[in-house]
Design a protein around this nucleic acid. Structure first.
Length: 425
RNA sequence: GUGGGUGUAGCUCAGUUGGUUAGAGCGAAAGAUUGUGGCUCUUUAGGUCGCGGGUUCGAUCCCCGUCACUCACCCCA
């Protein structure tokens, strides 16, 4: 058992092979899909001023109240490890002037929240997200959700469930909260302890309480949308129309609530049955964030990388199958062959042929075992006899066949994809 | 932050109703096969039984504390 000093900090993990292969695959497919939609990557700092998150996420949210890693920098400022990606991206885009208000960007990277770790929840976790800024437009919301569905499909996830809802116009948020409190007030005694606290602090959360008693009370209440303005309701109708146009199934879920204050209008959540208690793969929606007194509008989503990977595992995609194997393995018998093989390995690598070898001339059996374990397709064996003739014993590890070959033949075996330079070039 | 579960070899786990040298499988290293991986057989290496204290003639086992991991609540992706 590893001693504590070799372990990373609680809730943080080293990402190593073979798992890292899956990360790379997921990230590269994501880049391809984002490119197809005209998004460019944005990389913002991991450390931001604390106020940025307090103002954009809302100072009554749990994320801000008890989950942020904040440090005091020489008594001059309070710096926070970003707990989510949107706030930093919008800060950056707002600073870019008018261009930033019509931007299409994606990001990926680590986020930090000081929660107790559990399945699907780490203190350092990773998100892939997208932000499309621009004034509220139902078509933009639908496009964003469609892009996300496309992404999940590109990863090979087929069992996702999309739930959508609306929070209405930004100015409706207070009206809805007041309305809900009014109709909930007579039932206060029947609510669970948590919900009596939520009633004060974050009344929308009462709607998705898991407690059956609370659920019963909520069922009898008028829906959230009934407190909203006509404009909010018709906006949501148009979003749903656009989703049908794009052939997307979104389950309208009136009790779906997003936790952060900046959400307005369309919100959604995508869950996966293979995940356990934290079954949300992703959340997203339209938002309006005040930056320097001016509103920035946009629509976006964030996917939890670790949860995507867990979902892929649940659907039978395993990192072990994706690990890159060397094309060749060099086996050296004797010191002279060892040195010549090192030189050959460097040459092959410059030509783009991944190859490995043992740097000691230990027993052939041991070297063959290492070759087999590496998964190399071919093994090139060279000893004194081969050195003298200028040849190699070339073993095809899959077919388990071996023949003597000279270097030119070996090159065409290892470099079959090399195309001759264009004529006249 | 609250509650439950688990800490024994690199990994997965047995085990001892408290008693002498703590076991297995997998993995690793070497050999059987004097220059050939996977299958088989043999051998070897590898352990402060998470850490600290208590009870006891004696604790890996019982008790207390602590730390770590893990699951769930809360919340979120």
């Amino acid at each position: 058992m590893a001693s504590d000093e070799f372990l990373p900090i609680k809730g943080m993990s080293d990402i190593i092979s073979p798992e890292v292969s899956l990360w790379q695959l997921v990230e590269s497919r994501a880049r391809e899909v984002f490119h197809a939609y005209g998004l460019t990557e944005i990389r913002t700092p991991i450390l931001e001023r604390e106020e940025l998150f307090i103002h954009s996420l809302g100072n009554t949210t749990d994320v801000v109240q008890k989950e942020m890693f904040t440090l005091d920098y020489q008594g001059k400022m309070r710096l926070t490890l970003r707990p989510e990606g949107t706030a930093g991206v919008i800060r950056s885009l707002a600073g870019a002037g008018p261009d930033g208000r019509q931007a299409r960007v994606y990001y990926l990277g680590p986020m930090f929240r000081a929660e107790r770790p559990q399945a699907g929840r780490r203190r350092q976790f990773h998100q892939i997200g997208a932000e499309l800024t621009g004034e509220a437009n139902p078509l933009a919301d639908a496009e964003c959700l469609a892009m996300q569905a496309h992404l999940l499909k590109a990863w090979g996830l087929s069992q996702c469930r999309i739930k959508i809802n609306t929070r209405g116009l930004p100015e409706d948020r207070a009206v809805v909260a007041d309305g809900l409190r009014t109709v909930l007030k007579p039932h206060l005694d029947g609510l669970c302890e948590d919900c009596r606290r939520r009633y004060e602090q974050n009344v929308l959360r009462v709607l998705d309480c898991k407690n059956p008693a609370c659920g019963k009370i909520v069922e009898g209440l008028p829906s959230m949308t009934s407190f909203m303005s006509e404009a909010s309701r018709s906006y949501f109708e148009e979003v749903q129309y656009a989703l049908r146009l794009l052939n997307l199934e979104g389950e309208v879920t009136p009790r779906l609530v997003r936790g952060l204050d900046y959400y307005a209008h369309t919100v959604w959540e995508i869950s996966h049955p293979g995940l356990g208690a934290q079954d949300a793969l992703s959340g997203g929606g339209r938002y309006q964030i005040m930056m320097n007194g001016k509103p920035v509008d946009g629509v976006g989503f964030a996917l939890g990388m670790e949860r995507v990977l867990a979902a892929l595992n649940a659907e039978g995609v395993h990192a072990e199958d994706l690990v890159l194997r060397p094309k060749a393995w060099l086996v050296s018998l004797g010191e002279a062959a060892l040195k010549e093989n090192l030189l050959l390995a460097m040459t092959l690598r410059r030509l783009g042929v991944a190859c490995g070898m043992d740097l000691t001339a230990r027993s052939m059996k041991a070297q063959m075992r290492a070759a087999g374990k590496s998964g190399a397709a071919y093994v090139l064996i060279r000893g004194d006899a081969e050195m003298e003739k200028g040849v190699f014993q070339v073993k095809d590890m899959v077919a388990s066949k071996q023949e003597e070959q000279a270097l030119p033949e070996i090159m065409s075996l290892l470099l079959p994809d090399i195309t001759p330079p264009p004529a006249g070039g």
